[in-house]
Design a protein around this nucleic acid. Sequence first.
DNA 1: CAAAATGATTAAAG
DNA 2: CTTTAATCATTTTG
Length: 350
Amino acid sequence: MKWFLRGFHILSIRGAQEEEPPDAQLMRLDNMLLAEGVSGPEKGGGSAAAAAAAAAAGGGGSDNSAEHSDYRAKLSQIRQIYHTELEKYEQACNEFTTHVMNLLREQSRTRPISPKEIERMVSIIHRKFSSIQMQLKQSTCEAVMILRSRFLDARRKRRNFNKQATEILNEYFYSHLSNPYPSEEAKEELAKKCSITVSQVSNWFGNKRIRYKKNIGKFQEEANMYAARTAANATSVSTHGSQANSPSTPNSAGSAGSFNMNSGDLFMSVQSLNGDSYQGAQVGANVQSQVDTLRHVISQTGGYSESLAASQIYSPQGINANGGWQDAPTPSSVTSPTEGPGSVHSDTSN
DNA sequence: CAAAATGATTAAAG
DNA sequence: CTTTAATCATTTTG
């Protein structure tokens, strides 16, 4: 999800022009802390740990709550630290203010001090401490975001699908190679057969399409295998068979199939240079050492990537062999010979 | 252990 | 909303 970005945007708005957003940032930080249940209702009780946190009102919720407790425990730690620090700052602010007041009062015996002057002093002091509070809030937000990404990012809980599910998906994909875009119904059907969700089916097809297109050569074996399988399945119906045409699937319009036997013409080996330009954006200097405790809480949880800012660099992917499914932005139209289904002889012994 | 595979997330475009 | 393309984080594999 995009929590971190939201938060990070707040943190790193130290841009060119001093836009001077008076309270906009602070408002957002406060809102976020509230939404996250960090700055919400105090909880003095010892045990009542069931915080609202994510009310999770959504429809298909029913998230695992077993591992959620771990998350909530950490969140609780963060909240505790946050409140402690906040209180400390407030107290320090008050102490300092009274101290300055006393000083001024003492001076007032030797020189006249206008009320305006006092007011100005107080305001300056408050502003200073406000900025410190802001830092605290920023750090807390950052901590919460890292925590969330540590526990709630589905990428961290990825499991491979079982063999059978992959079989089914591949079967569909290769038997609809000319238009591998299952309808909503088809997706539901596949999801049911594979015991996965429709979203997962969509993800799978999205990944498969792009990866197939990107390197067809890598998938040739697989394609032949599944094509042969479905062909064999279809030929059993028609007992004739003098001509081995085997249309098999009714809608195989015959384009994009492109099983070239040998003659490895398409070569687009993607030399993925891997743009590892990852840049850790240190967020502001730590005001006091106290703020660091928040980080430690997080690092105890396993240490996610310390810096979340990823500079997005667009890698110039020049090659683009239009696979031919959906209209691609670059009309280069390279190798789309629209090969016929071709004889599906299974000799290809390799 | 490093590289390949793989599922999930994101931004951008339609 | 869906899809592409890039990328992330994990799992499998050699």
